[in-house]
Write a protein that binds this DNA or RNA. Sequence first.
DNA 1: CCTTTTTGTGAGTAACCGATCACACACAAT
DNA 2: ATTGTGTGTGATCGGTTACTCACAAAAAGG
Lengths: 196, 196
Amino acid sequence: MSKAAEKTRTLSTAEERRETLIRAAVPVFAEKGYHGAPTTEIAKRAGISQAYLFRLFPTKEELFVAAIDRSCKVMHDSFTEAADRADADGLDPLEVMGEAYGELVLNNREMLLVQLHAQAISSSIPAVREAMRENFAGLYAVAAERTNASPEELKVWFAGGMLINVMTAIGANELDQPWAKTLADFEGDCSFTPIP
Amino acid sequence: MSKAAEKTRTLSTAEERRETLIRAAVPVFAEKGYHGAPTTEIAKRAGISQAYLFRLFPTKEELFVAAIDRSCKVMHDSFTEAADRADADGLDPLEVMGEAYGELVLNNREMLLVQLHAQAISSSIPAVREAMRENFAGLYAVAAERTNASPEELKVWFAGGMLINVMTAIGANELDQPWAKTLADFEGDCSFTPIP
DNA sequence: CCTTTTTGTGAGTAACCGATCACACACAAT
DNA sequence: ATTGTGTGTGATCGGTTACTCACAAAAAGG
């Protein structure tokens, strides 16, 4: 391609198509999981043919892993941004990151559901398991580096995140039962630092 | 049926068949999730025809909900039994129930995976969501009634359970990385009561 | 023995799924 | 203009899926 001649281009580059494909795939995988999501529907949402989908991602599995990595990146970015904000404002990074996660889950439900589906299917698809392990490794790394929390505190913090995930998935916040009020009350953050 | 003439019966009752069907369905749903689990494979494992499967459970969805309820019952029974044991031995019920859950997850992996798949798909299948809500209601009830833990303690306890689920699903215990050592170290129990 | 109910199956059906292949069009460089 | 390369699709294939229906055998009741 010439250096500065991208004036009128009707075709997209493969990388651009892969990007739109991932964005189209996330909500479909989120709703129906790996086995339930048809590649035809993903291709249609992306506005391309199913045949071209399989050229850009040779197998459905690779596309699913790409969708997982995408939702992991969203979380990672959200955490680092929260840590930056906490450093600038002199607040507790772990607490700010917890609040950021609460908001992220609230207005990015698809990312959460992709994570849950990936966790469930990871035991039978090695590539998914590997992606999820790397995901947790990266998330733990940023949490450990940007805060001065002890391993025990980090453990409780991650556990709280897992609870938020499940409660959001089953819509516990819509219920009035006491168990739902207790387990799904994140009161703006997800810090589980015990109140003495 | 005559009162006491069950001597030689070659055919099973419908209820017996439903039982064996559920037992055959659990591992299949556990491995592939709702959409990925074929009814043909479940029927074959149960030793009956697929046609008869659909007479005993008119839809695949009903069979999946039955599998969920089954795995919920296993957890519930495990908890009540642990609470009984704790009462008899004068131990902390919450702690004993935590240990019981750790063992349960270890040697009943299928139950755990059915739970994870059900959580993930609950947002798109109302009957599954309802089953999962009832599941948590029942589990919270037994935990609240059999222990004297505060809502905050119960919340942290449940959060720890969710972390155990995810770490077990991705096999974090097989890894040597520090994040895995920290997050997947249940050291015999899953009580998250903070160490002061 | 005869009738009714329950247990059980072989053989489908219509739709759908992941993946493939030949082929067409757009682009950039020679 | 030609050539080579990257972008994109229609048609289709072999296999699988949830679910159905006609039909048979066993059991229970009389």
